[in-house]
């Protein structure tokens, strides 16, 4: 396995009105191998989108990535890049698609134009060659009548078609990594499945690594190789997908599963997680899930590290100490 992305101790900070800086992303570490899909799961405001923007150094000012963070893309230290070198990473080595396909395309240019722009931003090709590639990409993402759609404007396409176009744009320069930030949240359920299928096919065909960012555990099953659950700016549990679904261990992950309806099995009352997501300006001390955690105990007053619960399975909870040797 070739490691394509290595993120260590990523901290993103913003200035607070009182002059301090707060950290919506606070010490996130993960890595991505070639051809692998890692799902980053969490509620709104947990820092997952900001994490993805930090990978491309697109954290909106006055936010910034703090010193001591590491983002390594192959042999490249992303945090040391500036200007043109940075531009050459964006789209070329990491492609990105966004949540809302209604607004992520430029309304005044045809889709063919926009895909060609992505190609020509990074590859030395002529306009005609770029247009040919745009056509091939539209075909690859499964758009019917690609030749006819090349000259369509975004508003002439449905949401699902637009997201396919967005994927084509993101893949235009053949990146090693695709970051998909809530790629299906704005789409109908049937279209969601199609888009996820397209992403999966492309990943397999190109050996691309995918970072799938979502709040929806439902779309993770069967799509991701590994899952990292984020809460309050930190990864609280990380495991291979099957392992996580079989043995969700962190009380927060368990809460997430308890709040998702099941199709099989007896009808049960859904159990929501009590309380609300803490604001990044005021994360609780100790374990950040403590105020909402039904299993909190004395030791939760201290901040836990990621502790092993099983092979390749770690969680940020002191309860792991009792179960480290499960199985």
């Amino acid at each position: 396995m070739t490691r394509v992305l290595h993120v260590r101790d990523l901290r993103v900070s913003f200035p607070a009105p009182d002059g301090h800086r707060f950290h919506p992303v606070d010490g996130v570490s993960f890595s991505l191998d070639r051809g692998e899909t890692l799902a980053l799961v969490g509620e709104s405001g947990c820092g997952k989108s900001l994490t993805s923007l930090a990978l491309l150094r697109l954290v909106p000012p006055p936010g910034r990535v703090d010193a001591g963070s590491t983002i390594r893309l192959g042999d490249t230290d992303v945090l040391s890049l500036e200007g043109e070198a940075l531009r050459r990473i964006r789209g070329r080595r990491i492609g990105m698609i966004f949540q809302d396909p209604m607004t992520s395309l430029n309304p005044v240019f045809t889709v063919g134009d926009q895909i060609a722009e992505g190609v020509r931003a990074h590859l030395p090709v002529t306009k005609a060659q770029a247009r040919e590639r745009a056509l091939a990409l539209l075909q690859e993402v499964g758009i019917p009548d690609p030749a006819g759609r090349l000259d369509a404007y975004p508003h002439q396409l449905s949401g699902g078609m637009r997201q396919r176009v967005m994927i084509a744009i993101a893949l235009a320069a053949e990146p090693e990594i695709l970051v998909a930030d809530e790629p299906t949240t704005a789409l109908d359920v049937t279209v969601q499945a199609q888009i996820l299928e397209v992403l999966d096919q492309l990943r397999r065909a190109r050996g691309m690594a995918v970072l799938l960012i979502t709040h929806d555990l439902g779309i993770v099953a069967g799509r991701a190789d590994r899952v990292a659950v984020m809460y309050a700016g930190q990864i609280v549990e990380e495991a291979p997908t099957l392992e996580l679904f079989a043995h969700p261990s962190h009380p927060y992950t368990q809460g997430l599963f308890a709040s998702v309806p099941r199709i099989s099995g007896p009808v049960e009352r859904l159990t929501p997680i009590g309380g609300t997501v803490p604001s990044p300006t005021a994360f609780p001390s100790g374990c950040r899930f403590r105020p909402r955690c039904p299993q909190a105990f004395d030791k939760s007053e201290l901040p836990p590290d990621l502790l092993a619960v099983g092979p390749d399975h770690r969680m940020r909870c002191w309860l792991a100490e009792g179960r480290g040797g499960r199985d």
Binding site: L58, G91, M96, F98, S104, V108, E117, A121, A172, A173
Partner: peptide, 28 residues
């Protein structure tokens, strides 16, 4: 603040392209 401008930046559009193609043309 529009996503398509952020998307263009995320995909490596140069500053000149962002300014003229994505901002100016949409302000036309």
């Amino acid at each position: 603040e529009e996503t398509f401008v952020r998307a263009a930046e995320a995909l490596g559009a140069s500053r000149r392209r962002v300014i003229f193609r994505h901002l100016l043309v949409n302000a036309a």
